[in-house]
Design a binder for these strands. Sequence first.
DNA 1: GATGACATGTTATAACATTACATTTAAGGT
DNA 2: ACCTTAAATGTAATGTTATAACATGTCATC
Lengths: 165, 165
Amino acid sequence: MPLIDPAEVFQPHDHASCAAQTLARAEEICDAAGARLTPVRRRTLEVLLETHKAMGAYEVLDRLAEDGFGHQPPVAYRALDFLVEHGLAHRIQRLNAFTACTQPGGHAHAPVFLICERCHAVAEAPGPGVRDALENAANAIGFAVERAHVEALGLCPACQKETAP
Amino acid sequence: MPLIDPAEVFQPHDHASCAAQTLARAEEICDAAGARLTPVRRRTLEVLLETHKAMGAYEVLDRLAEDGFGHQPPVAYRALDFLVEHGLAHRIQRLNAFTACTQPGGHAHAPVFLICERCHAVAEAPGPGVRDALENAANAIGFAVERAHVEALGLCPACQKETAP
DNA sequence: GATGACATGTTATAACATTACATTTAAGGT
DNA sequence: ACCTTAAATGTAATGTTATAACATGTCATC
């Protein structure tokens, strides 16, 4: 039972509850892993959860600084790294930016990212099918995949409607 | 008939001929497209072709400067952008770096990249299977994919042997 | 030989990321 | 409670990657 359906990310939804539930789930995950969701880390996740767009580290940093945390880059990068390590956020390579995980603990930590070029929202689609295909392609030449980044650029359902007519 | 088999990239091979053939093919492609493979651009491609590792823009820039071209970042970025636009090179998002295309004109311009974490070589495997799986995952939520970056990290065949025993 | 499109050179700066070191905080053992 | 230690945070300095903006040069075409 995903917290939010991938398709809903691109549509208006009860975002307050979407964010609150994800945050609650994040706390459970940290608890279970014996990891500490400290104030900066928690606040960083809250900031990322405000939007489904990816956010740059410096934008996060500005927000943290406003809240009284340090205003040097490592403050943001450390918190973001923690979140990524624990599967609570993802780095979007294509954008050099970060986004809160919408499925923490979900689909085997191997999502594919769908990045809308018009509204800049980022959704996570289930990755297993794509991973399998990738494994096949790699195995065919003897390459052993450890992890993969799959990022698609295109138009989300809502923006397709806006653009076409 | 690919210029070089993906698997060979990770093994010793006649690299001089590999590079020369690719360069020749690049010239044909530019000709056919009415694009000009000017001295900087050609030299940039030659530099990338020296190795199957991805190369950062500033490393390329240094090489160009040595050869008497300008030594400001745009010199390298413009040449690299040209090569990428014409399918003669690829940007590897994960590494913020560039690599010469080993299959110019080949497998529908939709390769998946295999990045060896030990020797840092980058190979291109045929992407269609992966693209199809990605299309399926995206279509399921109404997302229209325009292009995608698929990058796998792991160990190439040669480095698996080196590491295991 | 003027025009216009493309390509290159150069300056400056923006945007993203890390190293290194000092200080504080929290957890566990005695 | 107190000490020890590991983890987390703060801060300064710097490194790396990328682009904007504008000037100059080159070349094909008319």
